[in-house]
């Protein structure tokens, strides 16, 4: 069994790399995620070949363009008469990095007007790989931002509650009990229901993030409150108060630094939950809408019989969700074990 610390590092690095990929989504994706190609709906992934039909070996891999099968409706063939070599570092559609920098350099691609479709297309003929990577941007960021929101709220309210007590504490705890009594999906949906249905992508994103963040603040808040309660009774806090330390000083210097452990473990638990929450919302149609890709709304297509039975490539977002969940799970599990081990000392 690997040491816990190693696992934390491994999981952390893996996740870090994923996030970097997603940040540079435009680079890794060959095409603009909104670019439609109505001629090729639900086309299967292009196969990569090294040996062409005449038997010659090429060092540079290539693909055949996908064309509709003239004999079978809805099926596709490879057009073996053309070879499209795959090139690295090509120029293509332009994109923005972090909304600021512009570039049109892509990791790989083929010559126009042919397309390389490593993960097939969806109903509108949009390249799934590009949508996957851009969708990752949305889904992962949503999860992170919502988690920050939740943790921030939880920290603030929990710290005030724990430190000052009194009526604020009483009412805050009642409120958390209320929130925790409601099944979270219903709460999420209820809040979403009372907000406008049609919103611009940016608004939708912010909206979802806020809703998810607000629903989830209770657990961190309670943990922080508990921790603050025990921390403020410590000997060194009393002594510091004896020197004339103000509340703010005590919080800043002695109490809040103790919270970092809790915050980290909670973050590792909350972020994947929130990524899933966003995906669920989008899946149900209440999150991000067309044309913005999100892993959730990409999976929504699978609700159709035809798609789920024959278009296996549409499952790609599900795989990525599992991978991310798994990585975060390993991270949080190891963090948890590390923490209980150090508490026992």
């Amino acid at each position: 069994m690997m040491k816990q610390k190693t696992r934390v590092w491994l999981a952390g690095i893996f996740l870090g790399m994923l996030h970097v990929c997603v940040l540079f989504a435009g680079f890794f994706a060959p095409y603009n995620p909104a670019a439609q190609n109505r001629d090729l709906p639900y086309a299967p992934p292009s196969k990569i070949h090294f040996v062409d039909p005449s038997g010659r070996f090429h060092a540079r891999p290539f693909v055949h363009p996908t064309i509709p099968d003239p004999e079978n409706y809805d099926a596709y063939l490879e057009d073996k008469t053309h070879n499209c070599p795959v090139r690295l570092l090509v120029r293509g559609d332009s994109y923005a990095i972090g909304g600021v920098f512009h570039s049109n350099l892509h990791l790989f691609g083929v010559e126009e007007p042919n397309r390389i479709l490593l993960m097939g297309t969806d109903a509108y003929g949009r390249d799934q790989l590009s949508r996957l990577v851009f969708g990752g941007q949305i889904s992962l960021t949503a999860g992170l931002v919502a988690a920050i929101l939740s943790l921030g709220l939880g920290l603030l309210l929990g710290a005030i509650s724990g430190y000052y007590g009194g009526w604020f504490d009483e009412s805050a705890m009642r409120v958390t009990e209320l929130f925790m009594a409601l099944p979270w999906i219903y709460l999420l949906l209820a809040i979403r229901a009372f907000l406008p249905l049609q919103v611009s992508p940016v608004q939708a994103f912010l909206l979802i993030v806020c809703v998810i963040g607000v629903v989830g603040w209770t657990r961190p808040a309670r943990l922080i409150r508990g921790s603050v309660l025990s921390a403020k009774e410590r000997g060194y806090v009393l002594v510091a108060r004896g020197f004339g330390g103000s509340d703010w000083y005590l919080l800043r210097r002695h109490i809040l630094p103790e919270m970092t452990g809790i915050l980290l473990t909670q973050a590792a638990i909350l972020v994947p939950q929130y990524i899933l929450a966003e995906a669920t919302l989008s899946f149900l149609g209440l999150g991000l809408g067309e044309p913005t890709p999100s892993w959730g709304n990409m999976l929504a297509a699978l609700q159709q019989y035809k798609v789920i039975s024959s278009c296996w490539w549409m499952f790609a977002p599900a795989v990525t969700l599992v991978i991310i969940s798994g990585a975060y799970f390993v991270l949080s599990d190891s963090l948890h074990r590390l923490e209980s081990a150090s508490n026992q000392q």
């Binding site: 899933l276 499952f315 599900a318 599992v322 798994g326």
Partner: peptide, 15 residues
């Protein structure tokens, strides 16, 4: 099993 989100499980079983 914990790592696999319910959404995915549902879809898989559906398939």
């Amino acid at each position: 099993l914990l790592s696999v989100p319910e959404l995915v499980v549902a879809l898989l079983l559906l398939v």
